[in-house]
């Protein structure tokens, strides 16, 4: 077993874990933060995307021990005082989801994208969500939702 201490959405958690425990399982099963989804489990679909020290990462491809000492943000950490994050609002207003399975990962990738490109072009938005698959929407409304959030900031 190995000790892991991570700050998730501003709160520090310390736990003893098996080194082979994946970060996504740590978040979902030990911290009960089930907003981060497991999709393909093969580093492709991006449903498990969280921010690790501010950068988007696929939590199905990181062992929890690798994140020791890191700051992690999940979808649960975006809303403030009961008010949706601009990206969450954008997905609501622009109908950026149908089934919603990819949405948490899509939004976390978009957070990283907007940090790097506050006023992204459509091309930059599409490149920014290149690592996230949506099987419902055809991406149009997702792009609009991210544009909405960019315009609002």
């Amino acid at each position: 077993m190995a000790q892991v201490s991570v700050t998730v959405n501003g709160k520090t958690h310390t736990a003893n874990v098996e080194p082979r425990l994946l970060l996504v399982h740590f978040l979902r099963e030990q911290l009960n933060l089930t907003g981060t989804h497991i999709g393909c489990d093969t580093s492709q679909c991006g449903a498990c995307t969280v921010l690790v020290d501010g950068r988007s990462a696929k939590s199905c491809t990181i062992f929890a021990v690798q994140a020791d000492g890191s700051e992690i943000t999940t979808i649960e950490g975006l809303a403030r005082d009961g008010r949706l994050h601009p990206l969450q609002e954008g997905f609501w207003e622009e109908h950026g989801l149908q089934c919603g399975y990819c949405t948490p990962g899509m939004i976390m990738s978009a957070v990283d994208l907007l940090n790097e490109h506050p006023s992204p072009t459509e091309r930059e938005i599409r490149d920014g969500i290149d690592g996230n698959f949506c099987r419902c929407t055809g991406y149009e409304h997702i792009v609009n939702a991210i544009q909405y959030a960019a315009n609002k900031r």
Binding site: G46, T49, S109, D112, D127, G128, G131
Partner: peptide, 9 residues
């Protein structure tokens, strides 16, 4: 290479 999340790691 890959996608943004892959390039971050």
């Amino acid at each position: 290479i890959g996608d943004p999340q892959v390039r971050n790691r």
